[in-house]
Write a protein that binds this DNA or RNA. Structure first.
Lengths: 187, 187
DNA sequence: ACGGTCTGTTCATTAATACTGTACACTCGT
DNA sequence: ACGAGTGTACAGTATTAATGAACAGACCGT
């Protein structure tokens, strides 16, 4: 037989089961709605098969998620509140800035950055994988994105691919704060 | 033959091709590294096959992304700035609240909600698929999450699974603002 | 005790299709 | 004109996804 079971298949299987039981569905009813045999669903949940995208999609549809929802299962530390005065401080290479964690649970990762006057995220714009959404929480900042420099004020937001070279700076006389959120794609 | 081509398969194919050409790889070299035939890679890129998870993972590994990166490809409208006074207003069923778009590009979706005194997100806590990260931008709000009610002030943040019943309320005398970010899993 | 009906799992068999191999058409340097 | 690169088309097969039947256990009412 030699049924090879990979980690990812197990991961998907666990997520399917978690969602199915959460919806109060039995293996048979899920199978019926997705038009599969019950045994197949069981095998999927045990990671014994490597379903095709098309098959997974039919299963995901019944569970009310997209296929990506099955493949990037949320980490467990959800439902957490972080008080403004009680944030975990993160190490950083920024000059004159403090980076604090807003909770990196689930599929999102968020930090809030306090930049002292004259502080910036680096000497030159940086470029890395991923994507970011920034909201200016306090103060005035100048934000370099690619070729352009934007002056952002409280309430302004920016959504960009992290591959575009970017740089945050605080030229103003007072401390500025920006909240930055990015999607997690940890395996 | 009757080769059925689904939208999702095309989507994956386009993403594979985008990543491959971005890395300067030819169909043959990608095939060799992932240990597939060139024709198979071509078929995948054209959405003519529905590869198994295991196969897709081998391809994703060569391309330097996770499988979720292939399945939840970013939408194109990236690198956009939204000014505080220039946000697109969204329709909502909230009472005494204004919901504005912060840009739903890429894999993130963000809104900022202004709740008038006495306003709330609904009569009872709602529960739906997904996940949210909220940051109180202005004012005091009370936030119900499951059984607990939390009083949140400016700068406080909360990260939770949308499946947990939740409700936003503004009991204070002044308008409150919260920014909410969630990962997109739109097909 | 007894059916009856639900639950999920195992495993050999098969029907489907993922994947291959070969052939093709095309562009680019030499 | 050749060789070496590019990507694509298509018929075939070998893999395996998916099935079906039979299984053991839990629960219910009679």
């Amino acid at each position: 037989m030699d049924t090879t079971i990979t980690t990812r298949q197990l991961q998907i299987g666990e997520e399917v089961r978690r969602l199915r039981t959460g919806l109060g569905l039995s293996v048979r009813t899920l199978a019926a709605r997705a038009e599969f045999s019950p045994s197949f669903i069981s095998q999927v949940e045990h990671g014994q098969v490597s379903p095709s995208i098309a098959s997974l999609e039919r299963i995901a549809a019944v569970l009310g998620v997209t296929i990506a929802g099955l493949l990037a299962p949320a980490t467990e530390k959800l439902d957490a509140i972080t008080r403004a005065g009680d944030r975990r401080r993160l190490a950083s290479s920024w000059s004159k800035a403090r980076i604090e964690d807003l909770g990196a649970s689930g599929r999102l990762e968020a930090v809030i950055i306090t930049i002292a006057p004259g502080g910036r995220s680096g000497k030159t714009p940086t470029s890395h994988a991923g994507e970011e959404l920034g909201i200016v929480f306090e103060g005035d900042v100048s934000f370099t994105l690619g070729e352009d420099v934007h002056r952002l004020k409280r309430g302004d937001s920016v959504s960009f691919s992290s591959e575009t070279p970017h740089l945050w700076e605080n030229h103003g006389p007072e401390a500025a704060q920006i909240a930055i959120v990015s999607p997690r794609f940890t395996h």
